[in-house]
Simulated scan of single mutants.
Amino acid sequence: MSYDILAHYIKIGGTVFFTGFFTLAIIYALWPKNKSRFDNAAQLPLEGDDRPKV
């Protein structure tokens, strides 16, 4: 097995791995059960007082 063939298989494996990881991340973000969690996280910057406590 030459370096070129091995590099080709590693490139294909990496592409499949990262495509699968990206797909799982999108599914997780769009899963209906997680909607309330993400809505709460989106409101965090707007809540509370950002002034330092003296």
Score class of each variant (00 low, 15 high):
residue 1 M to F: 12
residue 1 M to Q: 07
residue 1 M to V: 11
residue 2 S to L: 12
residue 3 Y to R: 08
residue 3 Y to C: 06
residue 4 D to Q: 10
residue 4 D to S: 12
residue 4 D to A: 11
residue 5 I to D: 14
residue 5 I to R: 08
residue 5 I to K: 12
residue 5 I to C: 10
residue 6 L to T: 00
residue 6 L to P: 00
residue 7 A to W: 00
residue 8 H to C: 07
residue 9 Y to M: 06
residue 9 Y to V: 03
residue 9 Y to G: 02
residue 9 Y to T: 02
residue 10 I to T: 05
residue 11 K to M: 12
residue 11 K to G: 12
residue 11 K to P: 01
residue 13 G to V: 00
residue 14 G to V: 00
residue 14 G to A: 00
residue 14 G to M: 02
residue 15 T to Q: 10
residue 16 V to T: 04
residue 16 V to C: 03
residue 17 F to Q: 02
residue 17 F to M: 04
residue 18 F to S: 03
residue 18 F to A: 00
residue 18 F to Q: 01
residue 18 F to G: 00
residue 19 T to L: 10
residue 19 T to K: 03
residue 19 T to E: 04
residue 20 G to L: 11
residue 21 F to W: 15
residue 21 F to I: 13
residue 21 F to K: 14
residue 21 F to A: 14
residue 22 F to L: 13
residue 22 F to I: 11
residue 23 T to F: 13
residue 23 T to V: 15
residue 24 L to D: 08
residue 25 A to K: 13
residue 25 A to S: 15
residue 26 I to S: 03
residue 26 I to Q: 06
residue 26 I to K: 06
residue 26 I to Y: 05
residue 27 I to H: 03
residue 28 Y to P: 03
residue 29 A to N: 12
residue 29 A to Q: 13
residue 30 L to E: 04
residue 30 L to K: 07
residue 30 L to C: 12
residue 31 W to T: 09
residue 31 W to P: 03
residue 33 K to A: 15
residue 33 K to S: 15
residue 33 K to V: 14
residue 33 K to G: 14
residue 34 N to A: 06
residue 34 N to R: 06
residue 35 K to L: 01
residue 35 K to V: 00
residue 35 K to N: 01
residue 36 S to H: 14
residue 36 S to T: 15
residue 37 R to T: 09
residue 37 R to P: 00
residue 37 R to A: 11
residue 39 D to R: 04
residue 39 D to E: 15
residue 39 D to C: 04
residue 39 D to N: 11
residue 40 N to W: 06
residue 40 N to S: 08
residue 40 N to I: 03
residue 41 A to N: 09
residue 42 A to V: 02
residue 43 Q to C: 10
residue 44 L to S: 13
residue 46 L to R: 10
residue 48 G to V: 04
residue 50 D to G: 14
residue 51 R to F: 09
residue 51 R to V: 07
residue 53 K to I: 14
residue 54 V to H: 14
residue 54 V to M: 14
